[in-house]
Structure formats: C-alpha cells, structure tokens
C-alpha cells in the first residue's frame, strides 16, 4: 500500500517546495478531517457501554477538533510530504479497523 501511495505521489512533480507545501496542506485539511472523524467513531465505540450512545458520540465529537489540530501539526512536522500522506492514511486505517473490532465486541449495529 505504501508503495502505491508513493507511486501516486511521484506522478506529480512534488519535488518543488511549493508543491510539497500544497500537498501537505491537502493532507492536513482532508486527511486531518478524516482522522478527526475516524477517531471520533473510535472514541464513541470505546465509551458506548459506559456512558450511553448519545453521550459517547458527543464526547467523540468534542475531541475531534483537538485530534484535527494534532494531525495538522503532525503533517507539517514530518520530514516530507510523502511521509505525511502515509502516516495520516495509516492512522486512519488504524482507527477504522479498531472501531470495527470494537463494534464486534460491543455488538453495536450501526
């Protein structure tokens, strides 16, 4: 998967620093948003049985902006744009899988 991503990114000439910043901005905005969402799903599954469905969702959402901010900071601190893409996609996949696993465990039907 990492190979595919780096191939895709190499198609565009991202060697110019401007492109790199643009590329990073895209990861920060969209990848960060996706991460904030997947993380909120994870948190709400984690808390589902202890505080009830609605509050669990709400707590997940309350954290989303902080997750978003951290993701953006992460994107702009790693060595290069390719790594930023890969890291954010990895984190997204991690939270998606973890949420799915938790759903099997909690027996949530949504």
């Amino acid at each position: 998967m990492e190979f595919l991503v780096s191939y895709f990114i190499n198609c565009f000439n991202f060697s110019s620093p401007r492109w790199a910043v643009f590329s990073r901005s895209l990861v920060a905005i969209f990848g960060g948003y996706a991460l904030a969402t997947s993380c909120s799903l994870f948190i709400s599954q984690l808390l589902l049985n202890s505080v009830g469905k609605y509050q669990a969702i709400h707590i997940g959402l309350l954290f989303s902006f902080l997750v978003y901010a951290c993701a953006a900071m992460w994107v702009f601190s790693v060595l290069n744009a390719t790594k930023a893409w890969i890291d954010i996609i990895k984190a997204n996949v991690f939270f998606a899988v973890a949420t799915w696993l938790l759903m099997q465990f909690t027996g949530a039907n949504s």
């Binding site: 904030a36 969402t37 799903l41 969702i57 959402l61």
Partner: peptide, 10 residues
C-alpha cells in the same frame, strides 16, 4: 462541521 461523524453513526 463534524456532520460526517454523526451521519455515519445515527
């Protein structure tokens, strides 16, 4: 802003 998350869940 986070409508995606709620839409996915409820």
């Amino acid at each position: 802003y986070m409508a995606l998350s709620t839409n996915l869940q409820i």
